[in-house]
Amino acid sequence: MKLKFNGKDLEVNNIETLTDLVKDKKLNPESIAISYNNAIIPRKDWERVELKEHDVIDIVMFMMGG
């Protein structure tokens, strides 16, 4: 299915939940936060979010800056 991921179009297969997405992209769950269709989803709820076509997902982490 097609998703909007960090502003870019992303095609994913065999991904059902946010947890799947994080694993698939090899991201460290401890160091990221996810905004799903403009709502902030706490880590414990990622498993319960079922992805659909055209979902807008932003994944952020702390970086250099100040």
Partner: peptide, 28 residues
């Protein structure tokens, strides 16, 4: 006290977590 920013992850380059470079005793 150390400031950091919050940015979208870059899937193409695996970013090391900045927190690894900040002393554990510091306030973020």
């Amino acid at each position: 006290v150390v400031t950091v920013s919050l940015r979208r992850v870059d899937l193409d380059s695996q970013d090391e977590n900045i927190l690894e470079f900040v002393p554990k005793s510091s306030q973020l």
